[in-house]
Amino acid sequence: MKSDDPITNLVSAFARLPGIGERTASRLAFYVLNEPDSLADDIAEALMAVKDQVNLCERCCNLTQAETCSICRAPDRDHSTICVVANAQDLRAIENTGEFDGAYHVLHGVISPLEGVGPDDIHMSELLERLQSADANGGTEVQEVIVATSPSVDGEATSLYLSKAIKPLDIRISRIASGVPIGSELEYTDKSTLSRALSERREL
């Protein structure tokens, strides 16, 4: 509901952002109000630009300013291996490891009936298209899919669902390993994590 008071409006606008409560929102609003105009201009401009200029890569659904993203355009990457992630932040996390030189596919969400998110609400059909036709994948046939959704209940369900959809296509599909986090205590690790870490153990 919009009020006539611009300060109230700004506070409620900030409060709609995740992780920002009423109190923080009002602190931010008064900060913007007391700073020179240039701050408000810069923020407004950056906000509009992000909505105007950023769209989804037509191949992998990553965020990009062009039609296809820089990763899909990179000639030296292995476009026959696709790593499936839930969102752009996860893509960035994997990129930052420097360990992966294949392509990605960004789902922009995980399946969650509780929140009304079904398989059709995440960008899965684009992925299946890429797997079925080399044309949809820039001319390269896909050899392998690595599912890198989080090992949470929703991430697992999404990964299981994907594997059921991909299995008939006869493409190698794997799931990132999960197990005991580095620096943690074994005694406090839950049983499902531990038993999975055990069953997916590797030789020394």
């Binding site: 399946i111 009936p113 079904g118 398989p119 369900a157 299981l160 669902y161 059921k164 959809a165």
Partner: peptide
Amino acid sequence: DRALLDVY
């Protein structure tokens, strides 16, 4: 969705 029901 049948397949999703199987997953859960």
